[in-house]
Each structure stands twice: as structure tokens, then as C-alpha cells.
Amino acid sequence: MSQDYTRFTLSQRLQHIFMFVPFIILVLTGFPIKFPESEFWSVVMSAAGGIEKARIIHRFAAAVMILDFGFHILYLGYNLIKKRPSLAEMHLLPTGRDGKNIIENMKYFLFLSDERPKFHRFSYIEKFDYWAVFWGMFIMAGSGIVLWFPVLFSKYLPGIVIQIAYIAHSDEAMLALLAIIIWHFYNVHFNPRIWPANKVWYKGTLSEEEMEHEHPLELEEIKAREEASK
């Protein structure tokens, strides 16, 4: 009998939603300023109510995103201390197996092998996405807050920090947007093996078939644990 396996708890799914909704709003209200002559972003800017409203919306969305990220750090810390002993046990850290999986996957892609790598709870693709958010949040929130209060920060930091923040905010935004709409969307929507969408972000569960296909090692471990507890 096939059963569903919990992948993301309600809290985790909400954390993802409170990350990507502000992300979309931040892109829509920020890119019109990055590309001030683009017709496409002009339409977006008018829809957002003009630059003066867009600036306020941008800062509000940024605050929500930063709070969500802050919540995740506390959540992670709580889980590390209270529930599980280590990040490795949560399968979040890159390990030797990820290196092995990358080589196996390359062989598979190049028709040198017919076997897809067996992934555990998080594949190297998912680990990359997870830690990329940390890098992105560090750069975007850091530079964004400096640009929000330039006069205040210039009292404690050299003037060039404001200029660096301006470049970092603009360029890292581009990298983040490209990574999301090309890489993340391919892996969860446009990949023909996934198309039209991986529903796990709101359902929170994977079917046994999906588990066998995407996370066979985790499924094996769960089944072994179930056997042992019988």
C-alpha cells in the first residue's frame, strides 16, 4: 500500500511562502529603478503606483523577508539545540556523498551510465538552493539596510561602503533573480520529469512513488526504521 511521506511541515511551508511573496514584490518594485529606460519595467512601475509608492512597498516587503529569514535562523537554532544533534543529521550540510552524486549525475547526463544517483533527504541541488538563500540574504539585506539609511551608516563606516552597497544590491539582485527564474524554476517546474509543478511547497508531502524516484535513500532509511520498530 502506497502512503504519503511528510517532507515539509506547515511552519516550513509558511517560511517558504513568506520568503517568495516578498521576493516577487521586491523584484517588481526594485528592477524598474535598475532599468530606468526599459518599457517593460515602466509598465510594472505604473502598476506598483509609481516610484514613490514603490519605494515604500519595497521597504515593507524587505522587512517581511528579513523577519522571515530571522525567524528561520531562530527555528534552525531551536531545532539544533532541542531536537536534533547536528546539521549533518538534518542532511543540510554538503558531504562527500554530494560530490559522488554530482559525478554520478554527470555520467548519467552524458549517457555514460543509465543509473540516476540515489539521493537522500536533500540532493546537492536542493542544498545549493538552501545555502544560496543565506548568501543572497546576507548581501541583499546588508546592502539594502545601508542604502535605506545611508547618512546613519556613513557616520560609522567609510563612504565607499555606501557605493559598494549600491553596486552589490543592484548586481546581486540580478544574480538572485536569474538563479530563481532559471535554475530554481527549472528544477521545480520546467524540468520535464517534474512539469507542470512540484506540489510539495503547499501539500508538504511526497507520494511513495515520488520518494522512490527523488529520495530513494531516505525512503530506505524510513522503511528500515519502521521495520525495526515493529
Binding site: 547526463f109 544574480l175 538563479a179 532559471i182 524540468n191
Partner: peptide, 21 residues
Amino acid sequence: ILTAATMALLFAHIFLDFGRW
């Protein structure tokens, strides 16, 4: 350079994945 290198790697991965399919 960071953006170009990251996107080149990610694109290559997508391209190979799709090619296998």
C-alpha cells in the same frame, strides 16, 4: 564574474539534464 560563472554552471547543468531526457 560571479554572476557569469554561476549562471554558466547552472545553465550547463540544466542543458545536460534536459539533453538526457
